[in-house]
Design a protein around this nucleic acid. Sequence first.
RNA 1: GCUGGAAUCGUGUAGCGGCAAUCACAGGAGACUGUAAAUCUCCCGCCUUCGGGCUUCGUAGGUUCGAGUCCUACUUCCAGCA
Length: 365
Amino acid sequence: MLARVGEIKTPHGVIKTPAFVGAATRATVKALTFEQMRTLGSQAVLANTYHLVLRPGTELIREGRGLAEFMGWQRPTFTDSGGFQIFSLPNVRITEDGAKFKSHIDGREFLMTPELSMQAQWQIGADIHMAFDQLAKSESRDDMERAMERTHRWLSRCVVENAKLREEYLKQGLPEQYLYGVVQGGTFLDLRKQSAEFCAGQEVDGFGIGGVFTAEGMVEMLEAVNTILPEEKPRHLLGMGQEPRDLFIGAEEGIDTFDCVGPTRMARNGSLYTLDGRVNIKNARFTHDFTPLVEGCDCELCQNYTRAYLHHLFKVDEITAKVLASIHNERFVVRTVEKIRESLSKGTFAEYKEEFLGRYYKNCQ
RNA sequence: GCUGGAAUCGUGUAGCGGCAAUCACAGGAGACUGUAAAUCUCCCGCCUUCGGGCUUCGUAGGUUCGAGUCCUACUUCCAGCA
C-alpha cells in the first residue's frame, strides 16, 4: 500500500498531505486573492520560475523578502523550474548546457540552465524548488530516453549548485529551501524505474514526477516509481489534478502533493466542477436554474448565489463570474483532496473513492 | 414638396455583372492537466442518406447567358433645401 498521509514541514508552515497546491504561476492565483485562497483552505501554491524571471525579475522578489512575503501569502510555496517552458514554448533551443528561450513578452533572448534555475529559485525563495528538467518532445522511446538522461545529468548539476546556494543563503541567516528531483521516462515503465532510481540516489529533499498528461497508465507508472523512491521523502505529481480521477489515483499510489492549472483555468472559461461531473455554466439550460451549483458545497459561490446568477455573470462577461467560478473550482479540488486525506486516516479511502468517482463519471460513456 | 443617399442572416457591416454572399457582435456547443489561456475550436438561411439539394440581399417589373450588384416604378428610412 503506497497511499499515505503525512506532513511536509517548511519555514512557512506545515502542509498536511495529500494536498492540492494551487497554481500561482505569476505570483498570483488568477482571478483570486490570497485571502480567498486561505478562506477556501489552500495550504500551498506553486509559482513559475520562467515567468518570474521575466517579470518582475528574481532580484525584486528577493528584495520583497521572498515569494510568500512578496505575494502576501505567508504560507508554503513551491516553484517550478522553468523546465516545463522548454517543452511548451515555441522557439526554444536546447543544448546540453540548457535552453535558450525567446521571451514571449518582448522577444528578448533568455537563457536557462540548471545552475541559473537554481539561482533564480533561491532568489525567489519558495520553500520547495523543482530541479530543471526536460520533457520529451515526442512519445517515442528514443526521445523519452534522451530527455530522461539529460534530466538526470541536469539534476546532478542542480544538486551541486543547490548545495552551494544553500550554504550561501543559510550563512546569511535566510530560511531553508528544499529541492525536489524530477522523475521522467514517459509511459515506459523501465525508463520510469531507471529515473526513479537515479533520483532516489541524489541529494534531494523530495521528488517531482513529471511528464504525466493523462490518467492512462498512471497507476502502474506511479506504483513503479513510488516503490523505488524513498518513503520518507515527499512526492509531488507535477501538473496533474484537473480530473478528480487523477487525485484519487495519485493519492492511492503514494503521491503527497499535486498542482494543476486546470481548476482555475476551467473556472475562467465557465467549466465548473459538480459532484456529477463538470458542467458548462454558460449553457442555455442554466438561464432559469435558481439552485446552487453544488448543493451542500461550502464555497462562497454555492453558499450565496444561484446557477442562473453565475450564468448571467458569464454571459455579460463580468469579472466576478471568473472570481466566483475560480473560488468554487479551487475549493472543490482542495476539499476533494482534504477528504481523501481524512478517508486515508480513517481507513475509508476505498469507499470514498468508489462513491465519488462512481457518481462523478457516471455520465461518461 | 424638391434634391441627393440608403435598404444584404437577430444587430452593425462587406459586396461595384459570374459559386448562400465578407467581417464583427449577439446566439448555440465543445475543448482545456508543472498557464504565452480574460484563451482556443466548431456551428450559426432552410433541408440533407453529408454527395448534395432548395430558397435568398425592401416590393414589383425589366435588361442580361447570368443581377445583391444595371434600369423603371413603388414602399420605407436618412441628409440637405424649402
